[in-house]
Write a protein that binds this DNA or RNA. Sequence first.
DNA 1: AACTTATATTAGTAGTAACTTAAATCAGGG
DNA 2: CCCTGATTTAAGTTACTACTAATATAAGTT
Lengths: 108, 108
Amino acid sequence: MHAFDVLRDPVRRRILELLAEGEHASGEVAAVIEREFAITQAAVSQHLKVLRDSGFATVRADGARRIYAVDVDPLQDVDAWLDRFRRFWEPKLDALETEIARGRRKRT
Amino acid sequence: MHAFDVLRDPVRRRILELLAEGEHASGEVAAVIEREFAITQAAVSQHLKVLRDSGFATVRADGARRIYAVDVDPLQDVDAWLDRFRRFWEPKLDALETEIARGRRKRT
DNA sequence: AACTTATATTAGTAGTAACTTAAATCAGGG
DNA sequence: CCCTGATTTAAGTTACTACTAATATAAGTT
């Protein structure tokens, strides 16, 4: 599933916003989303699965709970796709300066 | 239609890539897309309509031709949404430096 | 072991979105 | 004015996606 397919859904975007604040258990995420979007826990779990499968989130077990964390790799891909449009709104920067400012060098 | 709904479609993303290179007539876009995606000219026209309606593209007439240009406002919205995740991959910059580097001040 | 809590999975349904084909619009030239 | 080329619009079909309800799984508690 392509990154943009994942981000298309407002529920998934909201979940990612929550995870951007820090790790959350599945149930914590579900509580917020159920309230804000009026959908069931099962639906939230399905969205979490999409996020896992597409690399936007990672999970670890904590007893019966599942702790989710954001993984920004696919978001960086989106950011990289936007690069070709940046010249329309960003002031001119030389190539090296841009590299440094944007921090998009290969991870070491 | 939300920006991410628009960007979800690979044909529309490809059209935006073409428009990022410069203005193109509807027919020029259609020629490329028909070849690359094997869909009809009518389908391409429908995608162009979506891009128009959602603010991603503007059109002007040139005789019977319709010349399309990219409008990056919605792309900037996407870029802004990504801001909350940038700290996961960007080196620390102070607030002002970030403002300058990212060029996201109000348009003057 | 039985009960409860936490979470995921399955099966089925309904709405939407992206096509195709056909028809409509509209500008320019003979 | 008719014809052609360029483009959009309309109608209908199909496939996909997000949902619910029900069930399964697994851990924690008594």
